[in-house]
Design a binder for these strands. Sequence first.
DNA 1: CTGAAAGCGCTTACAG
DNA 2: CTGAAAGCGCTTACAG
Lengths: 379, 379
Amino acid sequence: MARKRTIDDIARLAGVSKTTVSRVLNNKPDVDPNTRERILRIVKEEGFVPSAAAAGLAGGRSHLLGVLVPSFTWPMIPDIVCGIAETIGNTAYELVLYSLNDKTRENGEGDVIDHILSTNLVAGLLAVLPGQSSKFVLRLHQHGFPVVLIDDQDDPPLVPWIGADNQCGAYDAVKHLLALGHRRIAHIQGPMKYVCSRERYEGYCQALREHGISIDPALVVEGAFDAISGREAAHTFFTLPSDQRPTAIFAGSDLMAYGVLTFAEEHGIDVPGDLALVGFDAISSSALVRPALTTVKQPFQEMGQRGTEVLLSIIEQSEQQRFNVKPGFARDFMRLSSAGIDEPSHSPPLRIQLATSLVVRASCGMRQRSPISSIESVS
Amino acid sequence: MARKRTIDDIARLAGVSKTTVSRVLNNKPDVDPNTRERILRIVKEEGFVPSAAAAGLAGGRSHLLGVLVPSFTWPMIPDIVCGIAETIGNTAYELVLYSLNDKTRENGEGDVIDHILSTNLVAGLLAVLPGQSSKFVLRLHQHGFPVVLIDDQDDPPLVPWIGADNQCGAYDAVKHLLALGHRRIAHIQGPMKYVCSRERYEGYCQALREHGISIDPALVVEGAFDAISGREAAHTFFTLPSDQRPTAIFAGSDLMAYGVLTFAEEHGIDVPGDLALVGFDAISSSALVRPALTTVKQPFQEMGQRGTEVLLSIIEQSEQQRFNVKPGFARDFMRLSSAGIDEPSHSPPLRIQLATSLVVRASCGMRQRSPISSIESVS
DNA sequence: CTGAAAGCGCTTACAG
DNA sequence: CTGAAAGCGCTTACAG
């Protein structure tokens, strides 16, 4: 059973001062190699782990990383958090989870952000699918607080961001439908306030344009990313005169595609016989629905991993700055309140766009994948 | 933008000592009502939030709650964590997420537990589905560290625990199949090392017994909670002579039921026509598979909520003890290492068992639920 | 290369 | 009812 030793215990055991132990613990230079080695050995023997609270207090920094997620209702959140958790697990940091529940939402997301900042607990923040919070996150970033956006972009792009290549993913999906011979391809957009929805729409338009097909406004409907809005969109398309109906639908999210499947089931429309369907996201349940859904896979776990790595490097950099440029600078900087501080990051913000991949399953009329592979994707 | 004030700022603003501010902040008695009110007002005006790190260090306690989850591959984890996060959101605590990834798993879960204890960061731990970790968690509990188990029990029961009434849930499921006229009802067990698997099996036996049906060992197979093992179990059942095959299967988890559906799809077995199927868990995708799965719903969110409430009360209680019984007692107590400390909690450990409910869908031959309700459960 | 001392922002006996 | 002082376990100038 681990027990709580302090840095004093280690110092005594090693016959040095705690200053020296601290230096070793923090990989500072100017320690005799032998001394360093001896201390390291003792630290290991004793299973000593410094108190994060004390280190944070004294050093003015923290070993905690905040992760802000919207409610857990979005099916990609677990995958993203998984990637984050795994990456943080390899570092000395711990993960503090902040989530937006109904109560915090009604008070405005700004409260959560204020809270994150004022408790002064975390060294940086990963904002997953920030949505409406992104303007608060932007404020944080402008005040010098390390922040990274995951999945959902801000607009205009000012904050470091990791996400998928939405336009290219959408383009591939629609190309796939075109290759299968479809010409009347409808699109259910995600909410157009999201950059990713606009990018997916752009990919849709680009693919059609390249095939000399003009966009038919009757075949484009804005949804809400959820199943209900997908079903409504399908209803809209199928109340068109029969010769104007789509033969294929590209849904901006898997959940909206599920809504289309439900509509088809209700109305005896055969998928893929009468209607081909492609989703976006490749959440795990899309292998389970029938027909199994062809969809664009976003590398959610990798988004979490890369996002964490980027945040860590930003934090490191801002600490560098604090010690090299002017001691105490960053801390004072953080305390400035009303003044219109706007640190112009001279370099454009880091933006990493990860490739998507098309997962072909039964919903477009391709041969059904073997059942084993659909099992594997849920187990 | 929030900025970082300290308790000194508030003390100066209120014209009192920081001792008094601290007392107000911590709801201690013996403060003049007017003083208290004034301080509270200033705290609010300034948006002051005390530094959790400093408070933790000084007070020897922390405002952080650890949540230990196995990998995110289990579909109920998000629901449970959601319940936890929501409940913590109403308190002054923050949530620190620890997860077991492949690396930590190979080092043994003991490492994670040691790490949790030795960083001295969290005031208590919620262990979700601890599985193999539960013996480490037991050690924590025996050393006086506040711990609550969620979902998966320890055996024998020594640690506070919140879970579902597995036996009763299984009993209801099998009764449902019996009521539909089935007599050859198979069961795919979860891994029998888990208490919950044994309880579900017990519920299965109880229902059959009450109907004067004896358990046929050929109709009981142990699975691994995942889809592949469910498919294998179905294969085992359907290689029996045709008059000995089951007409219904009660799967110990939804994922195993998915495996049965896959097997049925492969072999042209109609569900529910040829075979009725019930699962256990009611994870969200069970509304999406076809036929939609009848299953036993576990109240995962509530498990998270109640578990958090229990942990909080245990922490409070142990702090009470620390200050009333003997100052410094708890802290010294925690540091004892080798000695075989075994605090006999004089009262039996708290155990809360929540009711399950049967969600009837298409897989048993009841009328199919309206599509709207299956949409609602995924959106 | 090393250590004594001050200090991070709080809490808690202790003394009034 | 209130405050001065010590201390939580660290880090960081500063001085050698």
